[in-house]
Design a protein around this nucleic acid. Structure first.
Lengths: 205, 205
DNA sequence: CTAGTTATGGATCGATTGATCCGTAACTAG
DNA sequence: CTAGTTACGGATCAATCGATCCATAACTAG
């Protein structure tokens, strides 16, 4: 059944996508309501009727980002994949996504709120939670690899995961600084040697 | 000879240090003039007489940062060191510095302006220049290693440097997210295996 | 001493911030 | 049709932004 009252004059999904592009480019605090309203093509009243506040809009934007672009890191949580493959694919897909010229470079989760006023702790936590999730997935990959006998028993999962996660986080700044995608993709091949170096201890010559 | 006129009632160096702490913690845009003036304990007039503008104060702050905390990455430019040692020390010192609880975590150069309003491009460039400098130093380390016969002739300096630089850049976000220094230091040991893996091609079994 | 110079506190600037309010338009239910 | 509901454009809010101005204080040169 159709809802009563005057119908909304704009598409909420498209408005969130427009906001996503702005928050991704400029970050949370540096994107103003005026910018958002102009990109959405709506008035102040319509904005608050639809999204309640800047912060709640940002939450919707993050949710949208995570369910689309952000999915590139979800392979790390796929237990059907071999652990090494899961991590390598996480890195390669992240490189490709973050350097895609059809949208702002880097990752919104890393860039949108690296530093912020103390009043926006909620926004920071929102993104920090996702980073922690990625980190846990990568750590779990290493732990699974040890269980499966693909890495030596003495492996330190936290330290090894920190290598790949740090590399992943650094991609955002590199992408923003204009490092070519080809260089980044080649560097993924190199960083995966960390894994192989650990694994080679399992096959003594 | 003493300068004429009423003497300054505060120490400029201490004021810059106070500003450094704020910009490091909250970033450039999120640190307000009111915060800065309160931390410095001076009035608006004194502020502008001494520093001209928020942007110029930030430049002084960056200069101060680079000549102190930021020196941890300067070892990468030291050609007296063995290239591998230079890179490893850059990473280890960065871990120690960025996790030191006596000041804000992470690196100001990476965190203070990852995203910004279009009007602050100047500030962004200021920090991006330093990141590019670090990157060039690390690339030069790899190139020197090839010249010195410590890495194979076919090595891709850009790709290999991208591994270490991406790892370095990622440290800031990890430090902000509270990853323990011990985990990060252990991960440096692991990431250096990328270098050793390349170098081992020089010594076929 | 006086004249010149610089720094000070504090009021204040115009612009912009995120957010609210109001009268009206556009729709549905009955 | 009328009554009820929701969305609209646009004016406007208090707060804060970075920055400026002015009268006065505190110093030096002569």
């Amino acid at each position: 059944m159709a809802r009563t009252g005057r119908p909304r004059g704009f598409d909420t999904g498209q408005a969130v996508d427009a906001a996503l592009a702005l928050f991704w480019q400029y970050g949370y605090e540096s994107t103003s309501l005026a910018q958002l309203r102009e990109a959405m093509g709506i008035s102040s009243a319509s904005f608050y009727a639809a999204f309640s506040s800047k912060e709640q809009l940002f939450e919707a934007v993050v949710q949208r980002y995570l369910s689309t672009y952000g999915q590139v890191t979800a392979v790390a949580a796929d237990e059907a994949l071999a652990p090494r493959e899961a991590i390598e694919q996480t890195l390669r897909r992240s490189v490709r996504m973050q350097t895609d010229p059809s949208h702002p470079s880097g990752c919104l989760v890393v860039l949108a709120e690296s530093t912020c006023a103390s009043g926006n702790q909620r926004v920071r936590d929102l993104l920090a939670d996702r980073r922690a999730w990625d980190r846990r997935n990568m750590t779990a990959c290493v732990e699974r690899a040890v269980t499966r006998g693909e890495l030596p028993p003495g492996t330190d999962p936290k330290a090894l995961a920190a290598v790949f996660h740090s590399f992943l986080l650094g991609l955002s700044t590199q992408a923003r600084d204009g490092v070519p995608a080809a260089d980044l993709d080649a560097s993924v091949t190199h960083v995966m040697r960390v894994w192989d170096g650990m694994a080679s201890a399992l096959h003594p010559v």
